[in-house]
Amino acid sequence: MRIVLVDDEILPLTRLKTLLEKSNVPEIEIVGEYTDSLKAIEEIQTLQPNAVFLDIVMPDLDGLALGEKIQELLPDVEIVFTTGFDQYAIDAFNLHAIDYLLKPVQNVRLEKTLERLEHINNKHKKVPPKHTIIKLFGGLNVVTPDGHTQLMKWRTSKAKELFAFMLNHRDEMIYRDTILELFWPESDIDKASKQLYTAIYTIRQTLKNYGMDGVQISSPLLNSGYKLLVENVVVDVEQWLSCLKSLPPLQETSVDEHEKIFQMYAGDYLGDCDYLWAESERERLRRLWLHHAHQLSEFYIKNENYMAAVKVQEKVQALFSDAEENYFTLMKLYDLLNNTAAVEEQYWLLKKMLQEHLAVEPSEEIESWYESWKQANAMPHAQTFS
């Protein structure tokens, strides 16, 4: 487990490091120690920690602001706050911190925090056996063990949506009243209950038809709710998140692994289903993928592998065609590759997209760049990526 420590005081920083190194949790690696919060934020992406222990009261950038910035840069990192003042607890947990330790940190209390971190870390590393795969990226499909992708056919759209909802909340108890209110809000209780039973029966039969014996619906509380259990079946979103979480820092020796995980994203979460309840998860996964795409593209640009950066940006554009910055990035990349026709194409595609979606013109920055590019186009290549 890769850990970064941030505290503006050297003594508690050293004490925490010593406690961590003597803990009962194996494979702890302290990859960074900082007394300067601004320095920590500069280097956090390079370090790619699994967890960050942050002091809250610090000069320049306090721990709460630093934690928010770290979560923006590394959405999957776990945050543990350390402080001598307990009045910050609510603010800390509003940032989805995994824990909150009061100074001086006690060994027994720290061990409980590390157990939680280890459990989360092991959960992300665990990849189910590769048998049947349920695909949620791009839509709801099934990949059989022999590699064939099948579009799941459902008797009713309501049964399909209920299955997707239960899969989204797999291994959680979903109460019957919650389901009835969400899926049959206009029906009286007796009619809605019958429709629910029919939908559950349909889901079970459909799973049986596709040989997914590892996906079971249980009703542990005497029909007051349901729980979807998934065993011996891979869910592509879960697999992708696990792989993304365990990626090593992006460098020459690991770029192929990063590229493979980047390509695993095959479209929005349940992208062919207009389910409002799925929107927050769809946006979260999209944000994670776009963040990784940006990292990969920047790495290729830094190493002057412009064609590889183009391929990353082209996939981003294919999936999310309304991002103005993507067109601009491709314009500059194609300029670096001396592909004038492609620069022109991206500019006019951008104008068309903006007119159709927003009825506006490209930003002043893009227009200015494009005009400068046109003037310099007949001259020796002199553009830079900026």
Rank of each mutant, 00 (worst) to 15 (best):
K112D: 11
T113E: 01
E115S: 10
E115N: 10
R116S: 06
R116W: 02
L117N: 01
E118F: 01
E118Y: 02
H119W: 10
I120C: 09
N121M: 10
N121L: 14
N121Y: 10
N121A: 14
N122F: 09
K123E: 12
K123N: 12
H124G: 04
H124W: 08
K126M: 15
K126A: 15
V127N: 11
P128N: 14
P128A: 15
P128C: 15
H131R: 08
H131F: 12
H131N: 12
T132D: 14
T132W: 10
I133E: 12
I133Y: 08
I133N: 07
I134C: 11
I134A: 11
K135E: 15
F137Y: 11
F137Q: 11
F137M: 13
F137G: 04
G138H: 06
G139F: 13
G139N: 11
G139Q: 09
L140A: 15
N141H: 10
V143Q: 09
V143Y: 03
T144D: 12
P145M: 15
G147I: 05
T149V: 08
Q150T: 04
W154P: 00
W154H: 07
R155D: 14
T156K: 10
T156D: 08
T156I: 05
K158R: 08
A159W: 00
K160S: 12
K160L: 13
K160I: 01
K160Y: 03
E161T: 02
E161K: 02
E161I: 02
E161S: 11
E161Q: 06
L162K: 01
A164P: 01
A164W: 01
A164I: 04
F165D: 05
F165P: 00
F165V: 03
M166I: 03
N168I: 03
N168T: 03
H169E: 13
D171G: 05
D171T: 02
D171W: 03
M173P: 00
M173G: 06
M173C: 07
I174H: 04
Y175N: 07
Y175C: 12
Y175P: 00
R176M: 10
R176E: 11
T178Y: 06
T178P: 00
I179V: 10
L180D: 08
L180V: 03
L182P: 00
L182W: 01
L182K: 04
F183Q: 03
S187K: 05
I189C: 10
D190R: 05
D190A: 14
K191D: 13
K191R: 09
A192K: 02
S193Q: 11
S193H: 09
S193M: 12
Q195C: 13
L196E: 02
Y197P: 01
T198V: 09
A199Y: 00
A199V: 00
I200W: 07
Y201D: 14
T202C: 12
T202D: 14
I203Q: 06
I203H: 04
R204H: 06
R204F: 07
Q205L: 14
Q205H: 09
Q205G: 10
K208R: 08
N209K: 04
N209Q: 06
Y210S: 07
Y210P: 01
Y210G: 07
Y210E: 08
D213G: 09
D213L: 11
